[in-house]
Amino acid sequence: MKVLDLSIGRPAYEVEVQASLLFEAALGLAAVTYDEIRDTLERKTPEWEEILRRMKPEAQQEVEYCAKHNTWQTLLRLLHGGEFTALEAFLQHLRSMTVEQLRYQVLPALCEPREEELRRLAAAGDKGAADILIAAAAGHGFLAAYVPFILNVDGEVLKRHLLLLTESWYEAAISPRETEWAEILMREVKVKREMQGRLSREAFVEWTIGKAYQPDPGLRRVLLVPNIAYRPWTIQADLPGTRVFYYPVSEESLFGDDDPYRPPASLVLLHKALGDENRLRLLKLLDEGERTLQELTVTLDLAKSTVHHHLALLRSAGLVVSDGSTYALRPALLQQMERQLAAYFERGGQGG
């Protein structure tokens, strides 16, 4: 029987790997201003504190302003407005923007299908559009405070803040290791692009970010941005028509060799996460079923901040996931742990 296929099917989407030291700078600001995850990062607190000490007092104040209003997210959105390979090119682009252009570009897409129209109207000062965006952002984590801030802050004040923050942070955090980190990112992009041609789009994204991926309907692009600053975390974000994953560079790219005696960072993090009595208790509770932070706090008879800290470590190791209200165990990772350890010991060394 002949069939006339009139179905539309799922449209294809592109997958792109894009790296820049400017992304590295913005993600470094995200890391240094997020106290709750600082202990889970591979770069430890003394290193971040040393960077801050290298900055002038007025620049340190801009970092504090960034922490209060999450303007690292503003920088990331601006960086996606062009292909900026040099600091000065980005700063010049920012200087040339009108306040309306700036607001439009850094407002998140929240209200399909009118998202572009509402962002343009709100950026131009339309109160009705602004109210719709603010209402849509309520309940979206930090966006609930970020969207009203972008819509109400003095645009010129925001521009001056971003210019000073970006230039000062780049000088203190990126410039001292600029050559080294540029080479790491180049190695990472080269390896990923070589592998991209061998895998399907979904498989390539999953291989890169280290977790299952299912594309959303209407998605036109997946952008993969490697970073060093936020290792071992992956940050997921949305731009109009685009899903962005800021993922940790691989260890092969980071170290530039394949040292058989260097354990994978994920394996080290996994064992560190398990090396605490309260975290093991948390895992056992979550093995019985999903729990809220309040339920875990009451059951363990610990301070909420303490439980949140332990959960952050377990999430960074990939043992626990959260939908924003409840926490759940990922038993598959525990089941794979023995195989990961065996694979590490089986890697060839000098002895044999």
Rank of each mutant, 00 (worst) to 15 (best):
V3T: 05
A273N: 07
W181I: 05
L21F: 04
A12S: 13
R221P: 00
P263N: 07
I209R: 08
L118P: 00
Q335F: 09
L313K: 15
H308R: 15
V205L: 06
I228V: 15
A12G: 07
A343P: 00
L269H: 08
L110A: 10
P46N: 09
P113S: 05
R330G: 00
E183K: 15
E156C: 00
M55Q: 08
L27H: 10
F245A: 05
L21A: 02
R291P: 05
G197F: 07
H310C: 09
H69D: 04
G256T: 08
G241I: 10
T85E: 14
V268W: 02
A312Y: 05
S316T: 10
Q196M: 15
I184C: 05
A30S: 13
R95F: 03
E49S: 07
V321C: 05
P240Y: 09
S316N: 04
R77W: 05
E188F: 03
V99N: 06
I235S: 05
E252V: 12
P232E: 04
K44S: 08
T234V: 11
Y104D: 13
C111D: 09
S168Y: 03
S20L: 12
P148N: 11
L333M: 11
E295P: 00
L158Y: 06
R201F: 02
F345L: 15
L341C: 06
L162G: 11
K68H: 10
T179M: 08
L341Y: 14
F245G: 01
L341P: 00
L165Q: 05
M337G: 01
L91A: 04
H69S: 02
Q60S: 01
L163T: 02
R119D: 06
T98N: 10
Y65F: 14
D301V: 07
W48V: 03
E156K: 02
R315I: 10
R54L: 10
E183W: 12
G139F: 12
I150K: 01
E50P: 01
D154L: 08
S316R: 07
Q336L: 10
E100F: 02
V222N: 07
H309M: 12
R120L: 14
G9E: 03
R38Q: 01
D154C: 04
P263L: 08
E178L: 10
L41I: 07
L199Y: 15
Y104M: 05
V32S: 09
S200E: 14
G351K: 11
G210R: 07
E277P: 00
E14D: 14
L274E: 11
G141A: 06
Y13V: 04
F255D: 10
